[in-house]
Design a protein around this nucleic acid. Structure first.
Lengths: 131, 131
DNA sequence: CGACTTGTTCGAGTAACAATAGAACAATAG
DNA sequence: CTATTGTTCTATTGTTACTCGAACAAGTCG
């Protein structure tokens, strides 16, 4: 896994780090259970503070993509298969958006709003007879 | 067209305003060529500064959704059809994301990264056993 | 023309946040 | 036990974002 971080970009460092790792997980380039580098070591390698790396890791943990354990480090969550359809849906959407010359910011805003107004997965998954 | 903004939310006011107007346009609840309220008047009605409203308008203008003209006001851009496929793609993606229990923040990050499929560089990360 | 409307630009102040740093702590591995 | 690794706490620094006031410029309309 190769991660690129650019301090000159407006995007926060911890977010760049999280995005890079997230992509490798969603794309299936790392398998569940695989161990990520220790925060202190990675921080040194990237030339950033340990807290910055840990913040990125914590972000991914909150998203359910990795697990953090003291003494054991950061581990890619198992039971993460089937993201292929997700990656495909994302690709389709981006294609459609660029077809309409819709800027990234507008696309994100629309997705965000759709996410909030959509029913939760749990609700869709059946909760007994509807009438 | 009813617009509601909440100063207590972490989302910037101008962004809340832009999102509200954007939705009404994408959903087709306002027709192309239709005129939006003048910034000063809308600002007074919402209890915010004129700049806040104008910044929201400017955001939509940069997205190509409206046009701004001095003396004439803000007008919904014509030639905005064909967003149906876009709305569909968004819906599909959100469904898929919720099926995987993927949080909104993670979804937005993935879409964002997919949109600009040309990252920049500096820094390396290796996976596998941490020696 | 001339008064009015409307968006634009300049400048500024406050708040929020990112990033860094040091230290001590708790759980896990070997 | 010893070393590793994430967690928590406090603190500082620099930068950015948001909101706002006032003056300006371009257009509209009688």
């Amino acid at each position: 896994m190769r991660i690129r971080i650019d301090p000159t970009l407006p995007t926060p460092l911890f977010e760049q780090l999280a995005s890079a790792v997230r992509s490798t997980i969603i794309d299936g380039r790392v398998i569940g259970g695989e161990r990520l580098p220790a925060a202190r070591r990675l921080a040194e390698g990237l030339g950033v503070n340990v807290h910055t790396v840990l913040r990125g890791y914590r972000l991914l943990r909150d998203e359910g993509l990795i697990e953090l354990h003291r003494g054991r480090g950061a581990v890619v969550a198992t039971r993460l298969g089937g993201h292929a359809a997700l990656a495909g849906a994302i690709h389709d959407l981006v294609d459609e958006a660029k077809l309409h010359d819709l800027p990234e910011s507008a696309l994100l805003a629309l997705v965000s709003e759709a996410y909030r107004s959509a029913p939760s997965a749990a609700g869709v998954l059946r909760t007994g007879p509807t009438r």
